[in-house]
Design a protein around this nucleic acid. Structure first.
Lengths: 143, 143
DNA sequence: GCTTGACCTCAAGTTGACTTGAAGTGGCAG
DNA sequence: CTGCCACTTCAAGTCAACTTGAGGTCAAGC
């Protein structure tokens, strides 16, 4: 059969075994068998972990990721919710693009103080549309 | 003069006063004066906070953000380092785009199990170029 | 059959980013 | 002059996401 020993999965995925155990503990992934004491995972786990990694870079908490995909790794939400997530990602992509542009700009711009460089300031202003209201508590990203 | 009382800055930026004090404590921002006990900030702080928020959504730690911009908020790194950061952002933007596409796809796809939908799997495979080596420890995100 | 080494469990520790609470201070409205 | 209340300090608490450590197990190679 092609079950993966936890050690193999750890190596292939780059995720430490201790983390895999932790993920299983919180119900984010599942092992399908044991050989002796050792957990065995199926190959889908590899894909699931890729998905989890992706979710993490997007700043979702493990709890959110868990809510997004069923234990088998298949997405698990109503269409509208999925599109809402995607919309949030679109926003975040725009923000990251802004930051990247700002970084590239200052790397090349000759102004003595960037805090006074109009181009730089304009780039930043694009990023944060005037927020008058207090933002909802973020979940830390974070990272 | 146009100094901002901490309360005002908190309101305008959406960042709680306690957090502003914390940011000052770790040297991420600086207050320029006191009125009585109350901290006063200058208007640049507003821009700096926007930058910090941006850095956070990008998954940088406060420590990294601190290293990226001087106390005045001006970027502070050699050109090459800035471009390296920008390159990492480019990668992250691609990953987020992949995740977004995957989400949009599954929102619309009719396959019973997405873990078997070739389109979905292909999308994911794009995300994670074969990583044989153990990834360096991330700084947490996110989150 | 024995050793070895990678796994196991469970509890406790760590880190980053804040928040909360208690006790105090000071500008300003009345 | 007196309150009030938003601020102050400092210590401690919290939360997510792991990691570490102690003590134990077991399959495989010698």
């Amino acid at each position: 059969m092609n079950l993966l020993d936890i050690g193999v999965l750890a190596e292939r995925s780059g995720v430490p075994a201790s983390t895999l155990r932790y993920y299983e503990e919180i119900g984010l992934i599942e092992s399908v068998a044991r050989r002796g004491l050792r957990r065995q995972f199926d190959r889908q786990a590899l894909t699931q972990l890729a998905l989890i990694a992706l979710g993490k870079t997007a700043g979702f908490s493990l709890e959110e990721i868990k809510g997004m995909f069923g234990k088998d790794g298949s997405p698990d939400l109503p269409r509208t919710a999925l599109h809402q997530r995607a919309d949030k990602l679109d926003l975040q992509i725009r923000e990251l693009t802004t930051l990247r542009n700002a970084l590239r700009h200052v790397a090349d711009c000759q102004a003595t103080s960037h805090m006074e460089c109009p181009k730089f300031l304009r780039l930043l202003r694009l990023a944060s549309p005037p927020q008058r209201e207090r933002a909802p508590r973020p979940g830390r990203v974070k990272r």
